[in-house]
Design a protein around this nucleic acid. Structure first.
Lengths: 300, 300
DNA sequence: CATCGGCCATACCCCCAGGGTATATCGCTC
DNA sequence: GAGCGATATACCCTGGGGGTATGGCCGATG
């Protein structure tokens, strides 16, 4: 019994995220009644009420919330299974490794070169991916490895730190804190700081500098999606930010000053792969990449 | 397209592990032809040949091997989803935490007490589980947390070390190394050491002491399944072993002597939970349990 | 070398679960 | 109370998943 099927989970996810059976049916390309039946059947199988219905739609019960989270895991795992199996079938299985734009042209080539120097090295393919999607690509099995930046914690991923660099404060020119003194993160806690959209609690803590120095001050500041926006809002005087030194070097401009922050944790780039992978080539790559490690990485 | 269904994965797993369509059909309680068709269909959907057939059965191709591994992940995730959802539906969701026999009566009660002392603490249920099945219970969603022993690495699990203790050498009375000198793991590498059955490479490395001092000497020694067997084979002079100090204290007997091993890594008990869990109670439990942490745990 | 036995693939049939359409029912709004 | 926008129910139909029978292949066996 309780032989849940993927179709039911896909349906449930659609319904729970849409908040409506009829809308979900539309996006699934099917009629509403069978969907209604399928969800009821899923509830019967689990013996659990998953949705509260009323006349304006549906909303997940607590049990439904957990099923929704678990469903994401399952569907990720399925997608990963399909991708990995297909990739494994190719004659010369290629190791696919990804990174976001900046890292892809700096750290990644060094790591790839280190791997290619191994006697047992195979083909490597580099995929440049968008901001924040590296972990998903690994989980979905579309890539074998990803270089990700701090904070180095991804659910379901194993991570090995590679290289680190200090973080510095980015201040609008003429800001009160820009007078030349060295700063501490506590100085920044009372200032508005940019908020990355869709960020996890860990990311919020890390980018606000609260990973080393906790603070209960409210988090304020303009929402941003990428580092170009970050530079803009700082230049406009809307916020101060804690940024990797390399970003500071790449964005020297008269309306922004950068200052060291003594007690900020460093920005670390690490290599991540699916937790528990037994793939020989993945292990080789990680080992080769680790030879790039510098001492700063320890403090991640 | 490529809408793989769980039924197909369950079938594939059965076939791949049985090594035969007809035997798998029997264990699945169905006839062989539909199974054959289902597998062919799965291969068509993936566009990948999964099995090599011959007249004496089937064996997985490399792609089939990866699919088999991925299938385990998927089915684990599904089972976890079902269990967690059902548990979440109960009125007062109980936090279920497990440990193997020894740990369940020593470290676990202390951790549970620390959690119960929290103002927001809820119900806690303790489940005593068998050797080596703790990680599976967490992955399958049957428990929320597990106390596991070194080596603290479980695929798909997050682990926080709690308490550690040194490991000592267990030697047959009269053994050449039992003359009172302090030992190093290198001394043990040339001796036969018990081999845990079904152990992962990490476990083999850890229990042979090769995690701190590598060695290429062949691994020899009698297979064992639990610590009672371990004590027996040492007492009989068939092997020497590296064991936690607490096990040594619990098994004082005239035909075994225990000796410190200076450079052996400690035995650490940690609390493990599903990687990336955002469950409030799980986080509370881990935080409460961490207050038990002692300095030795750092070296895990 | 003819036979047999085990195994997988194919052919063919049947039935039901999953999907469609039509409609009932329920709350809210105006 | 009429209308609207939801979900649930009733009923039908079809595709595919499962069954049985059988064919083809290969190695073992006398």
């Amino acid at each position: 019994m309780a032989d849940v099927e993927l179709r039911e989970l896909r349906y449930f996810r659609a319904v729970a995220t849409e908040g409506s059976l009829s809308r979900a049916a539309a996006t699934l390309g099917m009629a509403q009644p069978p969907l209604s039946r399928a969800i009821s059947q899923l509830e019967r199988r689990l013996g659990v009420r998953l949705l509260d219905r009323d006349n304006r739609g549906v909303s997940p019960t607590p049990a439904g919330e957990t099923l929704l989270a678990e469903t994401a895991r399952v569907l990720d795992a399925v997608s990963a299974a399909v991708h990995r199996t297909r990739r494994a079938a190719r004659a010369n299985p290629t190791l696919v490794v990804t990174a976001k734009p900046g890292v892809a042209s700096t750290v990644l080539p060094r790591a790839v070169d280190a791997y290619r120097a191994l006697p047992a090295a195979g083909e490597v393919e580099i995929l440049v991916s968008g901001y924040g999607e590296q972990a998903d690509l690994v989980r979905a099995g579309e890539v074998d490895l990803a270089l990700i930046g701090s904070p180095l914690h991804g659910a379901g991923l194993d991570v090995e730190p590679l290289v680190g660099e200090p973080r510095v404060a980015a201040l609008p020119a003429g800001h009160a804190l820009a007078d030349g003194r060295a700063l501490t993160v506590a100085d920044l806690h009372r200032e508005p700081m940019p908020q990355w959209t869709d960020s996890t609690p860990e990311e919020v803590t890390y980018w606000s500098g609260r990973d080393t120095v906790p603070s209960s001050a409210p988090l304020t500041g303009p929402p941003i999606r990428d580092s170009a926006q970050l530079v803009e809002v700082v230049a406009l005087g809307q916020a101060v930010a804690l940024v990797p030194e390399s970003l500071a070097r790449a964005n020297q401009r008269p309306d922004i000053v950068y200052r060291p922050v003594r007690d900020a944790s460093p920005y670390v780039v690490g290599v991540a792969w699916l937790a528990g992978s037994r793939d020989r080539r993945v292990a080789d790559f990680v080992r080769a990449a680790s030879t790039l490690a510098d001492p700063l990485a320890e403090t991640a």
